[in-house]
Amino acid sequence: MKRQGGFTLIELVVVIVILGILAVTAAPKFMNLQNDARKASLEGLKGSIQGAAGIVYGKSAIEGKESTATAKVDDIDVAYGYPVATSAALSAVVNGLEADWTCQDGADSGSIQCSFKNNTEWTKDKGCYVQYTPAKSVSEAASTTVVVTGSSCK
């Protein structure tokens, strides 16, 4: 008589236990994907704002308006060649800003913060936004930073 080959019950249980251990150790790595996607989107917005501000500065330099405190370049309000920190100015230079993002002026610093449009509860203290600060002098360029400190983005 031929002996039948196969796995014993103990072997199957051991394999299932090993697969379970691997799943438990790997699952937390994949649970954080939404937060990583939010942070990557903010980095993308930062790059868009920086690129647009650089293009506007180039146009300002061509027109000789990069050293004036207030001017207009292609109907965009600029300060020292860079867009001013208003929703209107940034929306004019960044495609899709109004459609996908919500921006609010930062009255205390003269900057503007933009976050996700569907994130209705974000505030400066929750820390999940891109902050654009316009140029304040000829020697100081505009800056864009990503702020990720609050629970709404982590």
Rank of each mutant, 00 (worst) to 15 (best):
E98D: 10
G96Q: 06
A107R: 07
S143D: 09
I76Q: 06
E121Y: 03
W122K: 03
G110C: 07
Q104V: 11
K117G: 08
A141H: 11
T102G: 00
N95Y: 10
K117V: 11
A135Y: 09
Q131W: 04
A85N: 07
T70N: 15
W101K: 01
A71Q: 11
D77E: 15
K117I: 13
S60V: 02
G106C: 06
S111G: 06
T120D: 12
S111T: 04
N95H: 06
T68P: 10
G64C: 01
W122M: 12
E121C: 04
A69Y: 04
S60N: 07
G110I: 02
K136R: 14
A141Y: 03
S139R: 04
I62R: 09
T133L: 14
D125F: 01
S60I: 02
I62E: 11
D75S: 15
D105E: 12
Y80M: 05
A88H: 07
T120A: 15
Y82C: 06
Q131S: 13
C128Q: 10
V73Y: 06
G64Q: 02
V78D: 01
K124Y: 07
V138T: 12
V84G: 06
G96D: 05
Y80E: 11
G96T: 08
G110T: 05
D125P: 04
G64I: 00
A88G: 07
G106P: 02
T123P: 07
C103D: 03
I55N: 07
G81T: 08
K117M: 09
A141E: 13
E121P: 01
E66Q: 15
N118E: 14
V94Y: 04
Q104D: 05
T123Q: 10
A99I: 00
A71E: 14
S109P: 10
I62P: 01
K124I: 12
K72E: 15
V93E: 02
G127N: 12
E140T: 13
A92D: 09
D105W: 02
S87C: 06
V130E: 15
K65V: 08
W122S: 09
A61Y: 00
T120K: 12
N118Q: 14
A69W: 01
A141I: 07
A71H: 08
V78W: 00
Q104L: 03
D108E: 14
A107W: 02
N118D: 15
L90Q: 04
I112Y: 13
G64N: 02
C103R: 01
K124R: 11
S87F: 05
D100R: 05
K65S: 08
A79M: 09
I76K: 03
S87I: 10
E98P: 00
F116C: 13
G110N: 06
C103N: 02
A135H: 12
D100L: 04
D108I: 08
G110H: 07
N118G: 06
Y129Q: 15
A89Y: 00
N118V: 11
K136I: 13
S91H: 03
P83Q: 08
K136Q: 15
K117P: 05
K126T: 14
A85F: 01
T102N: 04
A141F: 05
A88M: 06
I76T: 14
N119T: 05
